[in-house]
């Protein structure tokens, strides 16, 4: 069936099977491969995108559920003036090693900072519990999110 989704500000239309996951729609139909697939079991958060401004695991959502929605992926985060403040903070704090979790981590962090005000380090750790990083030990990720939330 046909779905029409506003992705990174642009209306994108495609004919998808109802079983198509949003992450496959983004990667395979639209070629937006910045959103990674990690665990495939809703656990790791590598595929996190924003749906109507809030974080969602795009492996746990069907493309048909996003019909009419506004989706932002990592490719749509930077503006004309350069990187998004969260991307900037990840860069400054070196909040990544292999980088595989980073797109999802950044999207989850953008949503988190928007949703919860005045977070401390514990709050950030708890808020990012749905995003796994196997390299960093999270230390610099937490630092970056706190820096970006100031």
């Amino acid at each position: 069936m046909e779905v029409s989704v506003t992705v990174n500000g642009e209306v994108r239309t495609a004919d998808v099977e109802p079983r198509t996951l949003l992450v496959h729609f983004l990667r395979d139909d639209l070629g937006l491969t910045g959103t990674n697939i990690g665990c495939d079991t809703s656990s790791c958060g590598a595929c996190t995108v924003l749906v109507d401004g809030r974080s969602a695991k795009s492996c746990t959502m069907l493309a048909v559920q996003a019909d009419g929605a506004d989706v932002t992926t990592i490719e749509g985060l930077a503006g004309e003036d350069g990187l998004h403040p969260m991307q900037e903070a990840f860069h400054e704090c070196h909040a990544l090693q292999c980088g595989y979790c980073t797109p999802g981590m950044v999207m989850a962090a953008v949503s988190l900072v928007d949703e919860y005000s005045d977070m401390d380090a514990d709050g950030v750790r708890e808020g990012l519990e749905g995003n796994l990083c196997r390299c960093t030990g999270y230390q610099n990720i937490v630092k970056a999110v706190l820096a970006a939330s100031e």
Binding site: S42, G45, T48, V51, R54, S55, A56, K57, T60, M61, A108, S111, L112, E115, G127, L128, E129, G130, N131
Partner: peptide, 9 residues
């Protein structure tokens, strides 16, 4: 419940 992304949906 779950994590923030799960709670949004």
């Amino acid at each position: 419940v779950g994590d923030p992304a799960v709670r949004h949906r």
